[in-house]
Nucleic acid binder design. Structure first.
Length: 509
RNA sequence: GGGCCGUUAACUCAGUCGGUAGAGUAUCUGCCUUUUAAGCAGAGAGUCGCUGGUUCGAGUCCAGCACGGCCCA
């Protein structure tokens, strides 16, 4: 696509625009002035005077001064209408030669769609009853050297929208709306935890030993220390060190990095909220999660029931709870007697087109089958509990059945949104599980290659009984903004660079 | 990693059976002082993603590659 070239300087439109800019400059017009006083906001003016009819506006003597981007321009020789957009909304202006004088009007004639301008004048209503500013003064604020996308269809190509989010934001108002909602959700999460006595902290993004999740990390190198560092895949082990240190309620709201595939619900860097609460169990966290999510839904949607991608989601507590095995039987159609039968599980996986090694722990087979057969069907909020211990190395064993842990994952609209458990705080058990993990690692890059003995040491100092949870913030935002792709809730999602050169000259792959 | 689809003007898109490139918006020129996807008349604007191949001739057919989307793993 021609539009994807980095700077298509040759385009005649751009040449013409630069030419016009030069002409304005020669006439002594500043193209990028820096003495614009803070303008009034289009949205605020509309909010107040939207109620005034033509008669009432005649009594409003005060002029209003706005600044914004010209989004539409309809010229008629000696007068023109334009739509001026700022971050609060758009307002129409009317510019006539008789009112601003022919010198100024000739300058205005050189303004283009996309330019940012300042306009001052009184309000009136047009024949078609649109609230409009009759310009007394008009001034260029920032010259635009490049044409905006088509005014009616805007910018639709998803690749262009993600690569040039600035243009997407200019053209598609709902984009800013989505990110405003995102900001509100983040703010609500933060204030929920803060007001419940949780301390917000920041723990290392660069870690010398990865941990806290099963995922391939990004590797970087610290020159002065002469060591490789990993971008964190989770903050968990540091937050639990803080529990040891006496921070009984902590949370961190920040980015994690996982060196894995990119998909409609995966971005290499994503935002996670992790919180830890001493003297609580995973069952307490279920209640907390219900309360928190219902509260956010009420605030954003005005209801705990809302539509996501055509399906109604009902977040009214309490939510459905099932054990992993129950879900596999009832939703996944696995026979109960097969749940511990490696051969039949493997055979079923083969049927589904998944070839897994024969020597994996049973939990891997069960969760893989769950991913395929159950997860997509969990549309309404559902807590899945009793995850096998062999795939939950940081979770506390269930008191009655040590083969499973006191853990849940939360699924909504067929996606994992949260993962929580009562924390393992017995350093002996933790050490055993870590060492076993590392011993069986092979060359699995998703498993840390070394045991974090300092974390064991911390547990030996003593971590109070606690429960912790991670919430996928991007996915929560997707749910509440009815976004189909994680890229729609991340301002600058990761894409392959357009022209990255490899040493072998073969392009980017 | 696999499958399907896409990539043509700044943007949104057509392009038939293989015959040498089209529209709308935007831009430029002219007309136009109440329009709102303003209107009317005219003009300019293209490495048809890239590289090869088949052919007298390729946007179109074939192969490879790049980037993206969706689905699967």
């Amino acid at each position: 696509m021609g539009g994807l070239s980095t700077l298509s300087e040759e385009s005649q439109i751009i040449k013409q625009r630069k030419q016009k800019a030069l002409e304005l400059e020669r006439q002594g017009i500043e193209l990028f002035p820096n003495d614009i006083r803070k303008p009034e906001r289009a949205g605020a003016i509309k909010k107040v005077y939207g109620k005034y009819d033509a008669e009432a506006l005649k009594d409003v003597q005060d002029p209003f001064r706005v600044a914004g981007r010209i989004m539409a321009l309809r010229r008629f020789g000696k007068a023109a209408f334009a739509s001026i957009k700022d971050s609060s909304g758009a307002i129409q202006i009317h510019v006539s030669r008789d009112r601003i004088g022919s010198d100024n009007y000739n300058i205005f004639k050189k303004f283009d769609i996309g330019d940012i301008i300042e306009v001052e004048g009184r309000l009136f209503r047009t024949k078609t009853n649109e609230l409009t500013i009759e310009a007394d003064h008009i001034r260029l604020v920032t010259k635009s050297m490049r044409p905006l996308p088509e005014k009616y269809h805007g910018i639709k190509d998803k690749e262009l929208r993600y690569r040039r989010r600035y243009e997407d934001l200019v053209m598609n108002d709902e984009v800013l709306e989505t990110f405003r909602t995102r900001a509100r959700i983040v703010q609500m999460l933060r204030s929920y935890f803060t007001s419940n006595g949780f301390l917000e902290v920041e723990t290392p993004m660069m870690q010398s030993i990865v941990g806290g999740a099963t995922a391939r990390p990004f590797v970087t190198h610290h020159n002065a220390l002469g060591i490789d560092l990993f971008l964190r895949i989770a903050p968990e082990l540091y937050l639990k060190r803080l529990l040891v240190g006496g921070c009984e309620r902590v949370f961190e709201l920040n980015r994690n990095f996982r060196n894995e595939g990119i998909s409609i619900q995966h971005n290499p860097e994503f935002t996670m909220l992790e919180f830890y609460e001493a003297y609580a169990t995973y069952e307490d966290l279920m209640v907390r999660t219900e309360e928190l999510f219902a509260q956010i839904a009420m605030d954003i949607k005005g209801d705990t029931k809302f539509i996501y991608q055509g399906n109604e989601v009902d977040m009214t507590p309490p939510w459905r709870k099932m054990t992993l095995n129950q879900a596999l039987v009832e939703v996944g159609g696995i026979a109960e007697k097969d749940l511990s039968n490696r051969e039949t599980l493997l055979a079923r996986l083969m049927e589904l087109g998944v070839d897994m090694p024969k020597d994996e722990v049973l939990g891997k087979y069960l969760t893989k089958l769950f991913d395929l057969l159950v997860e997509p069907n969990l549309v309404q909020p559902t807590f899945i509990t009793e995850y096998p211990t062999d795939i939950s190395p940081l979770a506390r064993r269930n008191a009655k059945n040590p083969e499973v842990t006191d853990r849940f994952e939360l699924f909504i609209t067929g996606r994992e949104i949260a993962n929580a458990f009562s924390e393992l705080n017995d350093p002996r058990d933790q050490k055993m599980r870590f060492e076993e993990q590392v011993a069986n690692r092979g060359d699995d890059e998703e498993i840390p290659p070394e045991v974090d003995y300092d974390y064991i040491r911390a547990l030996e100092i003593g971590m109070p009984p606690a429960a912790g949870e991670g919430i996928g913030v991007d996915r929560l935002v997707m749910l509440l903004t009815d976004s189909a792709s994680i890229r729609d809730v991340i301002l600058f999602p990761q894409l392959r660079p357009l022209s990255s050169k490899r040493p072998d000259g073969k392009g980017t792959k």
